[in-house]
Design a protein around this nucleic acid. Sequence first.
RNA 1: GCCCGGGUGGCGGAAUGGCAGACGCGGCGGACUCAAAAUCCGCUGUCCGAGAGGGCGUGUGGGUUCGAGUCCCACCCCGGGCACCA
Length: 849
Amino acid sequence: MTHPHYAGAMSTTPSDGVPTTAEPPAYVPTEIEPRWQQFWRDDRTYEVDNDDPRPHYYVLSMYPYPSGAAHMGHVRNYTFGDLIVRYRTMGGHAVLSPMGFDSFGLPAENAAIKTGVHPREFTDARIEELRSSLLRIGGGYDWRREVKSHDPDYIRWSQWIFLKFYEAGLVYRRKAQVNWDPVDQTVLANEQVLPDGTADRSGAVVERIDLEQWFYKITDYAQQLLDDLDQVEWPQRVVTQQRNWVGRSEGAEFDLAVCDVDGGPTGESFRVFTTRPDTSFGMTFCVLAPEHELVDSIVTDDRRADVDAFRHQARMTSEIDRLSTERSLDKRGCFTGAYALNPFTQRPVPVYLADYVLATYGTGAIMAVPGGDQRDWEFAKAYGLEIIRTVQPPEDFEGEAYTDDGPAINSEWLNGLDVAAAKAKAIDWLVDQGIGESKVTYRLRDWLLSRQRFWGCPIPMVYCEGCGLQPVPEDQLPVLAPDDVEFRPTGQSPLTFHEGFLNTTCPKCGGAARRETDTMDTFVDSSWYYLAFVGRRGDSYDGREMPFRKEDIAEWLPVDQYIGGAEHAVLHLMYARFFTKALSDLGLVPSDLREPFKRLFTQGMIRLAGSKMSKSKGNLVAPEEILDHQGADALRLAQLGLKPPQDDVDWEDVSIDGALRFLGRVWRLGVPGGDLVGETRSGLQTPADIAIDRARHALIAEVTNDFERWSYNTAVAKYMTFVNDLYRWVQSDDGAHGPTLESSIDTLLLLMAPATPHIAAELWQRRNGGHVHREPWPVADPAMLVQDSVTMVVQVNGKVRDRVEVPPDITESAAVATALALPKIAEQIGAAAPRKVIARPPKLINVVV
RNA sequence: GCCCGGGUGGCGGAAUGGCAGACGCGGCGGACUCAAAAUCCGCUGUCCGAGAGGGCGUGUGGGUUCGAGUCCCACCCCGGGCACCA
């Protein structure tokens, strides 16, 4: 493919022997871009040391899963990140701008099963492709700090952190009902299962099976994960999602004594959780989860067959069906034959099972108050159970269960109290009786971290027959998976069949032991990579005591600007927050570092014809082709100028041609030897020249403001407006004033340097020598931001009737006089005297008649 | 059902309560050219009008205000999140 020329290059015909006019230098992005990309690496422009004396600023774009050449989502994400890196660097900061690869994960392993290529080989090849794309986009990164999740050094420290968490009791192993993905053949965390019960990666319907699995105790941090959301400047949407996911509920827990139909105690009891202890007098039945441990012992003989059948049915029902609100309630419950004593009324109430009561939430048992809970109401209707209201609904209330505030009724000593007061009094009573207490419950579950797959970080634990579960000693890390494994779609990690890996010795007794063959969820790797970058400076971690130094973390963290997709709202972003808090409590990072990412920006998704472009749907538009032909600057500018960064993008709206056309205009304007600009004037500035100078300062102020508020699309529009102004000016009859033109173009290049770095660098060097990215960010002269005349709008009754040029410091009375003297205005108001005149000099006068 | 966003020309979008539609795309016209491309210049919400000019216009209906795309109330539609969590 030949390089297109965009500068109207004249063709020469050497054969006719006539000397040709000197060609103006053409804009050939494919020639200049690789040259500058190489320069930034050779020059180490974006390498910073931890002790750099400039003020520190940490800009981080979420590190990518290496799926091959970059797709449009990458381009958009990394363009924003790079713009900030270059902008902040010109602003005088030492900007930490690292890049790495989230290189463990299923695609590599699935490819291995299919083709026999080892996942490492596959992954390393994909990394090279993606790294090449990132370089070609023009990103300025400190590549000395690169991390890769599958690097043995990285594995070592992921395992080291796992062991630190294990020592601290933040890792445990337990048998649990877990999410099983039958397609990817592994368990999944709750966060990886979509609301419809399918897996977010494979799309398979997730099954519930009992397995012994490893968990991180993220629930220990539930309250802090909520509270510290106040400390971060994140999109409201993401904060809300995290709040919902943690799901805090305040209420009470108390014991119910099991009894027979007449209230005779059986000696057993179970605990219920409720958010509405104030409604306890209205409890007319209670419900246990089918899996509740007490069911077997309390069920009466005559009900046992039905109960067993019901529990079997509940077990067989898929999670989707069980959570569906569509199914009628009458098939979803089952009477146990047992009763429990309502401690408030001392009346026995029947104990039911229902599949909608979850064993994993609260205590797995509820008191049911049909008068105050719609679900209980429907259940009571279906099974013919008594309904007692305990809160007086307003007279016009037409619903069934009443859940809002009101005075308590039918509740003896709570009667007349509002909900809040009644709650408090009921809880006090439970405490006095010694049967209950106030209680906060969270929806958040522990993080299931083990995966039955090969291409992940091995869990560094061994099983010894004599000593039981033993952690691998630190000095034996990393535990690495062997290369000579056979990839078969068995549903178990290939490590399970590798005797050499499986068999080891117990670190405690030295006897025969077996290694854990599960690997870690890849979200474990991304939970600390932002710290790993700070620990790296090109040298390996080998021989160090720690993956990073606490002092260095203190220098850089929290990340000043984190950039990535909103799809990680409750996955990566929650896990990383947990890791930071736990590492902080363990003393491995500074104790005051409680949040990893101070500011978060979530950019929109790229869509094609309205549907999401993603790895699974294939990269339908390849940035590489644009890089090959129109270049990185055009691609970057098209992305930036299109729409606000947080919005989703439809690919067909991206106008590479428009961006390229603009860059061509900048080139022809700025390149020395170009033929656009003719003779320029020296000497004094004309009013037109001064207007350009003012526009230049306004541009500085506006672009800076736009950059600060993430309004890149308007910043690009302002570049274009300014260039349009310059074009009209240089082609006008008077032509351009030389010094004014030079400073205008130089300022434009400085302001474009973060957005379109290659063309800015090239033109700057050709014009001035030196490097635009080493220049300080320009500052507008406030005196030049004041116009010598402004347009004042004159309205009559709120409608614009005329405009007039006035001095910016015009007095109110002068402005009013000027406005009323305008013929059009006089005509409009006629003979009538103005009833009122609103003056906002120098911008607006509104005459009310 | 609940909680967030959002609804502006043919399209993407811009607009501290003060000139709606910046800028770009597309379209139309002109210049240059033998011609085309590229480039440069201009026009481009809509209706009425020959024109000057005027009417109407930011999802719908109300309200606040001298003045509302912007603030308030009600509703409709679209996108996202949560949803038997006791």
